[in-house]
């Protein structure tokens, strides 16, 4: 790193920037545009790793590591856990429901971005000092000197904030069980009393050919029964409707068996004759 003020960085860093910046933007766009929350989370994780690399390139060695450990490691995993808990919902749809929201968002975003870029471009930021001198005694030691001297109160207060947040999260998610859990007997009695579907749900799959979980069972008239498929798959729209195919198969089978039987009828007398 340069000790004196400079206006350009090394070519290696430039190459690294242009390659990884594209990756970061693609990751960010994917976070916004991906339909599934899991995909968004993974894209965001990718962007954050890229940012970690940028931190390292900018001389923030401690922050780069923390970015990977805390953000990508802890926070993103937390996100994934919650995605798992909540599951797939209709909220994942990208179809807009508020009239004009998409246009307003686009206009605001465009205006905001242009103004921000214009602001940065407007600032006279030709030269930079580099962190050579600041990092001379080690980046972590430099940060520690600042955090524990000048920013010690802020540091303590953020500590308190973290504790509070942890307690708050526990309070929010904790559910006191106020009543005894219903037994299986009570649940079945309740179902019967309400006149809901009493019998066991039908199993998925049609005939022996299709026993995959995502294929609904067919009712006697050939229509598919949604009850036979797991709710998660239904919500995700991953139910494979094979009713048409199955009916076609059935027709073909009947035809074949008819043909076979006809031939057999022809042959049976022979057999009797034999």
């Amino acid at each position: 790193m340069n000790l004196a003020a400079a206006s350009t960085t090394s070519t290696g860093e430039a190459v690294q920037f242009w390659v990884l910046a594209v990756v970061a933007v693609i990751g960010a766009l994917a976070t916004v545009l991906m339909k599934r929350a899991v995909h968004s989370a993974l894209s965001l994780a990718g962007t954050m790793i890229v940012l970690a690399v940028f931190y390292l390139a900018n001389g923030a060695y401690f922050l780069g590591i923390v970015q990977i450990v805390v953000y990508t490691g802890a926070i993103m995993m937390l996100f994934l856990f919650v995605v798992m808990l909540v599951g797939v919902t209709a909220a994942d749809s990208l179809r807009e429901t508020i009239r004009g929201q998409r246009w307003l968002a686009a206009a605001c975003g465009l205006g905001f971005g242009i103004l921000l870029v214009a602001g940065v471009a407007n600032a006279s930021l030709r030269h930079f000092d580099g962190l050579g001198r600041a990092n001379a005694g080690g980046n972590v030691e430099g940060l520690a000197a600042l955090v524990f001297t000048r920013y010690v109160y802020a540091f303590e207060i953020t500590g308190a904030l973290l504790i509070t947040a942890a307690v708050g999260a526990m309070v929010l998610t904790h559910r006191e069980r106020t009543a005894r859990a219903a037994t299986q007997r009570e649940l079945s009695q309740e179902r019967t009393r309400k006149g809901a579907y009493v019998a066991p749900l039908p199993a998925p799959g049609t005939y022996a050919r299709h026993n995959a979980n995502d294929i609904p069972a067919l009712l006697p008239d050939g229509t598919p029964s949604d009850l036979s498929v797991s709710k998660v798959l239904r919500d995700r729209g991953q139910v494979r409707d094979v009713s048409r195919e199955a009916l076609a198969d059935l027709a073909a089978l009947e035809q074949r068996s008819a043909e076979w039987l006809e031939r057999g009828r022809d042959e049976e007398p022979k057999g009797v004759a034999q």
Binding site: I98, Q101, L104, A105, C108, G109, G111, F112, L115, N122
Partner: peptide
């Protein structure tokens, strides 16, 4: 809708930046 309110906040931030510039 929270998102409608967020639009006004975002627009307001844009206006603030414009004013500052």
């Amino acid at each position: 809708y929270v998102r409608s309110y967020a639009v006004s906040m975002f627009g307001g931030a844009a206006v603030l930046i414009a004013a500052t510039l």
